[in-house]
Design a protein around this nucleic acid. Structure first.
Length: 599
RNA sequence: GCCGGGGUAGCUCAAUGGCAGAGCAACUGUUUUGUAAACAGUAGGUUGGGGGUUCAAGUCCUCUCCUCGGCUCCA
């Protein structure tokens, strides 16, 4: 390479080279879009029914290297819309893009010519293929992708490539990816015996094994404690609710696509199987969210302005019928527990409540080792063109969007604004964490709701004795326990800090004679509040140590004659290759201190 | 749901269309262990499931289920 280009320009240029290679191998190919992305690029093709297999990627890659080696140039031209339409007469997707540009008022478009290959493109590109790293890229995967991202549109074939400025950077990236896959929560969930998802029990429904359930419980206890200290009250609601409730909330219409079908209530399953008709027919639905129940609790009383803000929290398990292809480990399931809360407050309290929630989110992330600057924050706003799609009035939207932005700035959140990404019921602030493969998952969320207060006619009596509509905020800190625990497993690579570890201490017996002593010691630890297991198997000590290390136990204790005859313990810390001597009392105090400090 | 890859013992993986195997785990016995794998034996499978081609199918074809990577959607 004889010129220094921005990596994005290189990636984008490689996408074009790939398109040119595909064109020469599959002359009938129609081209969609081919942008640079994080770590590489992709391009969408319509190969007219022909499919690509992994072997084809190698073929395309070789062709690309030939084109690059040939030193083809990228020549930019500004041409009129009509001329562009002639050049791309046999490229329906490009024609559509040209029309879209024309509709936006563009009279000229830019095209790049590389040899005899033309591409419609805004740019930028390198000047010559000689500026591209011939061994710095690799085609990685084939996928389907809907044209323009629309589910109803034709599915094109998307080829992804990884691309870097040099071979070394590419190799580093590929090695990192392999390392990252070892931390995949689905792999660790199996290895550490935390959970599994059982085909016979139901897709997307997590079965938590003892160690996973313990991890959940520790997190949940911490969550409840923090909420009580943070001025929240707890509420509780059932798993199913009458169809009427969801008709009133509006979910029975706009959310039906994600809900499990209703069950008929009014008779037993046995009666149903016997073909009997129910005396009364009512339909109940598994809850896809907790909100309507919380609203009903609010509506059960009259409320004064003096009672606000109300902060009602519930770890509520909800069920959503996600499409099968969307399910993924713990991060996308069909039954999940939201760490939900609803804040109902006056307009003059909104700002303070938002700040408190953001502080709470930051506190949670810090407690679990996530650095706030690695969390991606999005401010989702209304699409200003289609205002009629949204619940609520302009004044309410302007107030809430502005105040969300102001508070986000004040709290120094590094956020991006996204027009048109708001929920129909209100603007929101979303916090997303990346998994080991770099995919973003929404965790914390802070959302205004104009829909439920309207539909359920929520109100409070203000200082003047008038009925006034409160502001309603939905918020979750983890998002869901399942997703958060999945990301947490990956974050710590399964080596949890002491306070979170399902098993904090494992006691290994040296010989048969020490089993009772080990079990008594374990009992003593448990009474003190340390989660302890004993391995008294008839195996060599070395093997028991190896297995305990594989389980990523925080402390491994070898107990034999020496320990039985004194108050000293031989403790091996996770990651250490040797043991240290410490008195029993000091060891217990050390572990308890770590638990208390969430270390 | 859509596009593509995959599915062999509890786990990790082998097996040109030609007798389904190994290691670990499990179980039994021996051994009683002092810091990262003691020894021997036993058992474990309609190769995800159904159908087809073939003298013969884990292997080829077909339908289906599950799973992985994308797309769409989403906590």
């Amino acid at each position: 390479m004889n010129k220094r280009y921005d990596i994005e320009v290189i990636r984008h240029s490689l996408a074009h080279i790939m398109a040119a290679a595909v064109k020469s191998i599959y002359p009938a190919a129609k081209f969609g879009m081919g942008p640079a992305i994080e770590n590489g690029f992709y391009y969408d093709f319509d190969l007219g029914g022909q499919t690509l297999a992994p072997d084809n990627l190698k073929e395309i890659e070789i062709k690309m290297k030939k084109i690059i080696g040939g030193g083809v140039t990228f020549e930019r031209k500004e041409i009129g819309v009509d001329e562009a339409k002639k050049i791309f007469a046999d490229q329906p997707y490009k024609l559509e893009i040209i029309s879209d540009l024309e509709n936006k008022g563009e009279q000229k478009v830019s095209v790049y010519q590389s040899g005899d290959f033309y591409d419609l493109c805004r740019g930028l590109h390198v000047e010559s293929a000689k500026d591209l790293p011939i061994d710095g890229f690799k085609l990685t995967k084939i996928a389907g992708a809907y044209w323009k991202g629309g589910e109803k549109n034709k599915m094109l074939t998307r080829v992804y490539g990884a691309a870097f400025a040099s071979k070394k950077e590419l190799d580093d990236y590929l090695i990192n990816l392999e390392e990252a896959e070892k931390r995949d929560h689905r792999k660790l969930g199996k290895e550490l015996d935390l959970f599994h998802i059982d085909e016979d029990a139901g897709l997307g429904l997590v079965l938590w094994h003892p160690k996973g359930a313990m991890l959940w419980r520790v997190i949940e206890d911490f969550w409840y404690d923090a909420h009580l200290k943070g001025g929240y009250d707890l509420v509780r609601s059932p798993h199913i609710g009458n169809r009427r409730l969801w008709e009133k909330s509006g979910h029975w219409g706009f959310f039906s696509g994600s809900m499990y079908p209703a069950m008929e209530v009014g008779q037993s399953l046995e009666d149903l199987q016997a073909g009997k008709k129910p005396d009364e027919s009512e339909q109940y639905l598994l809850k896809p969210m907790n909100c309507p129940f919380h609203v009903r609790i609010y509506k059960n009383n009259l409320h004064s302005y003096r009672e606000l803000p109300m902060r009602w929290a519930e770890c509520g398990t909800v069920y959503r019928y996600e499409k099968k292809g969307e399910l993924s480990g713990l991060t996308r399931v069909r039954g999940f527990t939201q760490d939900d809360a609803h804040i109902i407050c006056r307009k003059d309290q909104v700002r303070d409540e938002l700040k408190k929630v953001i502080d709470f989110i930051a506190f949670m992330y810090k407690s679990f080792g996530f650095e706030m600057d690695k969390v991606n924050v999005y401010l989702s706003l209304r699409d200003p063109i289609n205002k009629e799609h949204y619940a609520g009035d302009d004044e309410g939207w302007e107030f809430t969007e502005n105040i969300l932005r102001e508070v986000a700035v004040e709290k120094k959140l590094n956020f991006k604004e996204e027009l048109g990404e708001a929920a129909f019921y209100g603007p929101k602030l979303d916090f997303k964490i990346k998994d080991v493969l770099g995919r973003e998952w929404q965790c914390s969320t802070l959302q205004f709701d104009f829909n439920l207060p309207e539909r359920f006619d929520m109100s409070f009596v203000n200082q003047k004795g008038e009925q006034e509509k409160p502001y309603m905020l939905h918020r979750a800190l983890f998002g869901s326990f399942e997703r958060f625990i999945g990301l947490l497993i990956e974050h710590y690579a399964g080596a949890f800090p002491v306070w979170l570890s399902p098993v904090q201490a494992k006691i290994l017996s040296v010989g048969e004679a020490h089993v009772d002593f080990c079990q008594n010691l374990a009992d003593e630890f448990r009474q003190a509040g340390i989660r302890t297991e004993v391995d008294f198997a008839d195996e060599t000590l070395g093997n028991k140590i190896r297995k305990a290390a594989g389980e990523k136990i925080s402390y491994v204790l070898v107990v034999g004659d020496k320990e039985a005859q004194s108050d000293m313990l031989a403790v091996r810390d996770r990651g250490s290759k040797s043991a240290r001597q410490i008195s029993k009392a000091d060891f217990i105090a050390e572990v308890l201190a770590k638990i208390k400090n969430r270390d």
